[in-house]
Write a protein that binds this DNA or RNA. Sequence first.
DNA 1: AGTATTCAATACCTATGAGTATCGTACCGG
DNA 2: CCGGTACGATACTCATAGGTATTGAATACT
Lengths: 214, 214
Amino acid sequence: MTTPVPRVRREEVRRRLLDAAAEVFAERGYEAARLDEIAHAAGFTKGAVYSNFAGKPALLAALIEQQARKQLLVGAVEVRAQNRPGAVLDHLAEVVAREIVEQSTWSRLHVEIAQRAAHDPEVRETYVDVRRSLRDQLATTLAAGCARLGVELTVPAEQLALTLQALRLGLALEHGTDPEQVDRATVTSVVASTLRGVLRGHTQSTVDPWRDSA
Amino acid sequence: MTTPVPRVRREEVRRRLLDAAAEVFAERGYEAARLDEIAHAAGFTKGAVYSNFAGKPALLAALIEQQARKQLLVGAVEVRAQNRPGAVLDHLAEVVAREIVEQSTWSRLHVEIAQRAAHDPEVRETYVDVRRSLRDQLATTLAAGCARLGVELTVPAEQLALTLQALRLGLALEHGTDPEQVDRATVTSVVASTLRGVLRGHTQSTVDPWRDSA
DNA sequence: AGTATTCAATACCTATGAGTATCGTACCGG
DNA sequence: CCGGTACGATACTCATAGGTATTGAATACT
């Protein structure tokens, strides 16, 4: 009677569920997110969730793991690609700003995870590990990049790395609440000027100055 | 038989409930926070909550209102108190760091509110208003302070204000998740160096340099 | 003092959503 | 072609927590 509908591969199901979970967690927040909604957003039902994950916390854990692999703070690699110091600076600022504004789902998810980590010790443990290693990696890359370009940092690379991480989270939050005033150009300016402040050398920028968009 | 126990004044009940709500919201997050727990933390029961507030959302709204009055970002006034540019800078950094580390309840509540504002349009509206006006006020104060001290800002005051707001939120989040590595001295350093970066003039600092506390 | 009113405590209702148990069907080995 | 298994859909349980109705005691009013 009914022609058999080919089943989706398990791996694919898992992937879609994670994507949907990222979306819904970012949109509603972890607590307010409903497993039914996540499942339906992925095109499945709750049964699929429980056959792929142990439960709601495990779903979040898997997301953190996945985000860790995709590297919560991209842009480190970008530093290597440029040659002129000024360009590196502007480019990095633009990359961060683009991430915050255009991939707002991930940014909001990131904030959500951080917030969740502040509450739940279990989440915190894994999150802090990821966070620290990314910070170290970012610091190393920044230091190496600066050395290669002949610019000098006025602060330790680790401190700059932390500053960038914190600024990224904070700006994501500001943009999430007030995207009109905290727009992409503004975010770019903030990051660029912050970076410029800790560099010594020829670092003139081509980024547009502050624009009031009220 | 039983000697009448004097009743607590209504205003006082409201105050205690708000304090308790701030604590619990900060600790558990808005969604995970239970009204019973809040009431109990204040020394009352749920009945007290509903006779003083319309419900859970109204409780949060009242908190936002209260926090707005207490000024989410203190420190602006502190700028006026100092005379030497370097001292102003360090002092401001220390004030911010102290707020984040010692009054972590409020900082975490603040992040929670911001996060909540990103989700709930109703919350967003009032929050953005508060946030913008505080930003403006901070920018004005900073500009005035710099002018008075004869130091020059390399970026518009509004941009610096946003940077500080974002950095404060971000550092609160980082400290909330990793208080060991993101300790008070580190926070102070980050804020101080960020400020120093956007100032032109004699702004030598006396703040301790980066210390690795891993 | 006696009565009315305020307002928090208590008991209750009800919707919700995480988790579970079972079922049905597509895939796979024989 | 035919069981067996994997795995997602479906139907259910059950604890929880926001919200409401009622009660009872302390204050205010006359």
